[in-house]
């Protein structure tokens, strides 16, 4: 069977993941419910690949080859030949549940369902399938084609074989895998909470102001970005929803 990686969701994360997989030499099938989303996703991928060539991180040949490796579809059933499906749909349990159940029915026995969720339980998602040992978290960081980290999350029943296959895949993608347990926020979204939360507290208590807190964190702590700059970049809405999910 050809080694095909299915990617669900052509948003920021999904298209970034598709690009990374294609550059690693995999055939990628990028699925989204809407054609327009796929067009946008593909457009972003092409722009990012061009940028890579411009910055001499990629050769023109590599970029073209990667582009050719990516097919898009709005037909879910076509994902059935994937050896691994990486799900990067919206962060809603009901939606992911539906996707996982359909994948579970049509994928070959040995195929793995990986999810890019940043806040849902891998164990709970695995439990909606009959392949709890082959469901795993594969959490990329935004922008996925640049950030080196992938958190590999082991659900309660995820097998060692699944973990080692996804770990190898991550390395083939040129990323650094870090194993994390299935707890809220995994590693980064959990440990980083105080970076924002304390900055907001410090602001709220009038200890310092936004510009000064950012300046202190960069110039006294050596961080590349201050907490408020970073919140702006990530999106305050995204930050709030991650905080809520860790809290809950």
């Amino acid at each position: 069977m050809a080694n095909i990686i299915g990617v669900i969701g052509a948003g920021t994360m999904g298209s970034g993941i598709a690009q990374v997989a294609a550059l690693a030499g995999y055939r990628v099938l990028l699925y989204d419910i809407e054609r327009s989303a796929l067009d946008r996703g593909l457009d972003v991928i092409c722009k990012n690949l061009d940028k890579g060539v411009e910055k001499q991180k990629l050769t023109k040949e590599q970029s073209e080859k990667a582009r050719q490796k990516i097919e898009t579809t709005v037909d879910f059933i076509l994902l059935k030949n994937s050896t691994t499906v990486i799900e990067a749909a919206v962060e809603r349990f009901d939606i992911k549940k539906g996707l996982f159940q359909r994948l579970d029915e049509m994928l070959p026995h040995e195929s793995i369902i990986a999810t890019n969720t940043s806040s849902l339980s891998i164990t709970a998602l695995g439990a909606v399938t009959k392949r709890t040992d082959r469901v795993v978290g594969m959490h990329f960081f935004n922008p996925a084609h640049i950030m080196k980290l992938v958190e590999i999350i082991k659900g309660k029943e995820t097998s060692h074989t699944t973990i080692s296959r996804i770990t190898s895949l991550t390395k083939e993608f040129g990323k650094t895998p870090v194993l994390a347990s299935d707890t809220p926020g995994f590693i980064v979204n959990r440990v980083a909470r105080p970076f924002y939360g304390e900055a907001l507290r410090i602001l709220g208590e009038g200890v310092s102001d936004i510009a000064e807190i950012d300046r202190i964190v960069k110039k006294s702590g050596g961080f590349k970005m201050g907490p408020f700059e970073l919140m702006d970049l990530i999106g305050i809405d995204v930050n709030l929803s991650v905080s809520k999910s860790v809290y809950e």
Partner: peptide
């Protein structure tokens, strides 16, 4: 507060010491 949270995560075996350090350097710079 960051370091304290990291020690809570370590204590709860969320990841290894090296895993937490690597994740925070690569995932959030």
């Amino acid at each position: 507060c960051l370091i304290n949270e990291a020690t809570f995560a370590l204590q709860e075996e969320v990841a290894s010491t090296e895993g937490i350090d690597t994740a925070m350097k690569l995932g959030t710079n």
